[in-house]
Each structure stands twice: as C-alpha cells, then as structure tokens.
Design a protein around this nucleic acid. Sequence first.
DNA 1: GGTTGTGAATACCTTCACAGCT
DNA 2: AGCTGTGAAGGTATTCACAACC
Lengths: 261, 261
Amino acid sequence: MSTHAGQAPADPAGRTDPVSPVSMSLAADPSSPAQPPAAVPAATAARLPHYLRALSDFGATVNSQDLATAAGVDAATLRRDLSRLGSYGIRGVGYDTAVLSAEISRALGAELDHRVALFGLGNLGRALAGYAGFAGRGFALVALFDVDPTVIGAALPTAAGPLQVHHTRDAATVIAAERVTIGMIAAPDGDAQSIADLLISAGIKSVLSFTSGRLDVPADVHVRQIDVGLEMQMLAFHQAHLLTPADPAEPTPQQQQRRSG
Amino acid sequence: MSTHAGQAPADPAGRTDPVSPVSMSLAADPSSPAQPPAAVPAATAARLPHYLRALSDFGATVNSQDLATAAGVDAATLRRDLSRLGSYGIRGVGYDTAVLSAEISRALGAELDHRVALFGLGNLGRALAGYAGFAGRGFALVALFDVDPTVIGAALPTAAGPLQVHHTRDAATVIAAERVTIGMIAAPDGDAQSIADLLISAGIKSVLSFTSGRLDVPADVHVRQIDVGLEMQMLAFHQAHLLTPADPAEPTPQQQQRRSG
DNA sequence: GGTTGTGAATACCTTCACAGCT
DNA sequence: AGCTGTGAAGGTATTCACAACC
C-alpha cells in the first residue's frame, strides 16, 4: 500500500487491502435511546495502532502534521480521528505524547490484559511463540496447542519463557483455566475451522488466523486473517498495473515521499 | 474482521484495517487522451485474491450469490467488482469458474512469474522460507539474505528445495542475477529501512515487510506491511468495545452467518 | 503565530433494484 | 425463469479551509 504522487498517504486497511466499510457503533442495540458514547468508525479504529506506534518516535509533544507523516496518513484525517477519542490536543501547541498514548491505548483496550492461546506449532507457530512484541503491547501468550504427539507435553520456548504444549482436544479446559481471551491459529488450513469452532464454544470472541480459507463464525466473533499469499498477490497486482501506487485500504497506512524514484 | 448481524460481510482492506481510499488508475499518465483501459479501484483490487481463493471451492460454474458468500462479500459488490475486469459472466447461468479464475489471475499479474527475495532468516524468516503457498500462487522464492555469519553460505531448506544464504551486502548483485521482482523483509525492525533502501536502489518496486515501523520509500514503490502486534491491537479494540463486529477494511473480507452465538 | 477541532465539500464505495441477456 | 451488469441512491470516509483557541 502506497499512495499517489508521493504525498498524502491514504489508507490503513491496507493490508490488503482496501477498505472496510462498516462502521461500528450504534447499530447493535435498538434500545439505547439517546446517543451512544460516540462510536469510533472502523476506518479510524484501524489507524489507531499506527498512531500509537508513530507516537514513540517523538518527544514531549507532536503536532498533527508530524505525527500524521510518521503514521502515513493525512494531517486532517489524523486530527479527525483523534478528535473522536476526545479533545486531547492543545491548540497552538499540538498533542502531549504521553497523554495521547494513554488515550489511544485505552481506546484500544490495552488495559484489559489480553491472554492469548496459540494453535499450531509448526514453523510459523514457533516463530509466533518467540515473537517478543506481545508483552510490549499488552498481550500475554499463555497457552500452546498442537495435535502432534511428539510436541505435546514438551515445554516450548516463548518470548516470555517456556510454555507447555497441550493437545488441542484439551483446549476447552485450558482456555478456561488460563482465562484466554484471544485465539491465534497457525495450524494447517484444513484444521482451522475445527479450531475456530472449538474457540467459539469456549467463548472466545477474537481470533487471529494465519490460514487461507474463510472461517465461518457467529456475528459476534471477530476474526482477522493474515494471509501472506494474499498480500503477495496484492503486490503482484500493483506490479502488473504499474499505476500510481494506490493504497488498498488495507489496514496499513503507508508511504510518504522521499527520494524520487 | 467480521460483519454485523451475521449477514453481509463488508470489507477487505481489512487487514489492517479498514479502508484504503485511494483508487488507482487514471492519475498517472496525463498524456493518455481518451479513457484508460478502465482502472480497477483499490477496494476491488483488494478483494480479487479472495474471489480467486473462493473460486476453488466450486465446480464448473458459480453464481454471484454463492461466490460472494464464500468470499465474504455482498453479491452486488462481487458482481460490480467482476464487471470491472470485463464481462465474464453469463446471464441466467453465472460465471464459468475456469474462465473467471483465469481472468482474475491475469488481473493479478499471475502470469508475470514473480521472483521473491527474502531478507532475515530468524524464526519468522525460516517459517516463510518453508511456506508452500508461494509456488501455488505464482511466486518463486529465489534468494535468501541475512547478516549472520553463521548462516551465510549455508543451504537453507525452502518449500521448493534448498537455497543458499547470501550476505545482505551482496543483495544488489544477487537480485540482478536472479531477476528478483519482490522483496520480503523479515529482519529486525531496526534493519528494515536499510534493507528497503537497498531494494529500492536495486530497482525493486514491491516490498512485503513484517516489521513494525513505517518504511520510507519513493511513491512508485509499493509496500505492504504485516504486523502481528497491530492486528492483535485491532482485535483488542473490538473486544474492548463490544459492539457489532465491524469489519475494518482491512483488506480482508470476512464472515458470514452460521451458528447463532 | 501556531495548531487544533470541525462544518462543508468532495470523492469513493456499497447497496438497491431492475433492465437486458441467455 | 434465472442471473448478470449497471444506473441511481445512500452512506462513509477523506480532504479542504477556517473559526476557535492557546
């Protein structure tokens, strides 16, 4: 995902993609009378993590222009996005990075201490287990599952220390005991749906899957999929049509200018 | 990314996010007089890979409703998307899966035989090297790079056979010799920009990075980023605001109905 | 003077609904 | 009868531009 002329970056969704249309708020409850707390549009929500990361590149304060550039979006878009979380900017000055970080983190639910279970310990699964980025962003990897008898029971190294591998069939018990809130699926494509079913019946509402097919889940379960092949196809698309690089919504704001080519 | 009430799936861009706004076509060449071949909007482009994958679930023909459901989008959206590639449907019948696959593949540039170089052979890099999905989708992994002297020169197993590891500093030469067209970065965050610089000077226009920070590249270079931590933050957001699951553009169309909760 | 927050304008995407083809 | 392709409508998101404020 890049943008046009080397200036305004557009999207996020990018990954892959472009755009996700559905906003996310008022729809659910027909009984709420007045106005719901506010409702952050999906497009904005997708950019918040980018802002949070970009914030770490700055000192005590930032103005919208600089932060937007670092995050790969338009300054006006950034200001509108942030204004949806509340008025945390100071006119004539900019944003206090500490305050803003805290507010974005709060909006992202960072204080909820999410506990993650990982299914599938092949190459990718092990790489994920070793990923150090979890703890730093408020996620704890607390359970590992696989169906291969040669790894079950073993203690696998993870970024936060070794963790014992359970059989997938015991997932319900372990998930309850470990108070898991997020499931990650790094198993073969063919096993994904049954793992998803299992997660659903265990009450998990958030799933991150690295598999390819579509997962069939109830409407209240949130699935995000990371598909390397799909991302590559998207790059191939842009390579094929050598057009002005456009950012497919994807969830990945991108680009700026710099060099000239 | 899921959708609301358990019915129409929305987005794609998803991954990450919602939406990418920029379309992609006419902008580039001010010299073309009449109408450019057409121009596929970014939102549509992001969904094409999903259609392609969904197509493999069907027999000789499919109608828009079934294919849309399988791909996680609205039937009208699918029809409009496909109509942008040309008129490959048959009224009263549906789409011929073979014809449609071929057309989508062509639009995605599948016949271009993309050659991929991978930078960084840690856990993630090795997992990617072993990823079997490349060949099947028209990508060939042809070069491996790292800076660790203990792996350089070694032959690392990949899905398509062992490949020798080169030092990153020799990338320019190897990229030219192997006619690489796509670069994948699985190195530590701090090394990403210098690798990107190197790719750019070697003439690479498409980059898929698994790092976190923003990569600074010229406007004609297309970058897609896969950031696991960011995806997790997005899940956390939805978990925090237990709203109607909305699909963040992301580049990932999703969901349908099924069970009820 | 500088910068935010936001009304208004614009662009884009999705969805409806149906004419037209098989 | 069935289904695609698309005009038109509706909704959402981005961008401009400026008033309010520090």
